[in-house]
Amino acid sequence: MSILQVKNLVHKYITVGDSEEDKQEVTAIDDIDISVEKGEFIAILGKNGSGKSSLAKHINGLLMPTEGAVYVKGMDTRDKRNLLNIRQNAGIVFQNPDNQIVGTIVEEDVAFGPENMGMPVEDIWDRVTSALEGVGMTAYKEASPNHLSGGQKQRIAIAGIMAMEPECIILDEPTAMLDPKGRRHVLSLVKALNREKKITMLMVTHHMEEVLLADRIIVMDHGRIAMDGTPKEVFSKVDEMKQLGLEVPYAAELAWQLRQEGVPLSETITTREELVEELCQFV
């Protein structure tokens, strides 16, 4: 069974200007279908305003469908009785690390989720301990979160979700505010949790190099799904990606530029190693 199912999802909202007549209906998500299998690592791409974040917020019931439905492990997000269960199974990490920390000490912050689930105290500490270990932040368990770097804060936010032992984590541009080192740490953690613990990952991002970690890419445009495939399939369509206002990884872009000049390189090149390998065959 699919862990996530998005069926004919439509999300509309109304913006109101100065006067009543100024009302405008905006369609953020326009009839999309997605099904996600357990253990997949999916990257969601699209320019600002394409509906990526709206989609992410539907998955754990922060936004409700205008039409259609979203199911997490078969549970309908429209049914309020399911929400607590859904949010334990699908946690969200947001872009800004400073907006999602609630505790004054790291371990308290991580304990917030399981505490709210009404777990016995001993179990909570077990979970906090293993979650902090999982993100490599055990040494900081008694630190104050505001003394941590952005990358460390994001790892704490991920630990807070891990402590609920979810099957799925949704990451909405988790590295947008981080420096290169913080970014590498968060990404390798996300990758490890996916590979080792088989946690399903849905990551919204603008960084094409990060996308290469994923098994599957969904490209959104104007609230619809423009492309859905493996990184190789998506990034071989350089022209299409450009038309959607997106980029491709550096190696794919350079290979495309060289192909325009008549160099016979394959369309499936996405990494530096692949590009080097093919170029070296010419000398």
Binding site: K47, N48, Q95, E173, A176, M177, H206, E247
Partner: peptide
């Protein structure tokens, strides 16, 4: 350019 898509950047 933090947080902007490629076109915005």
């Amino acid at each position: 350019t933090a947080g902007l898509d490629p076109v915005g950047r």
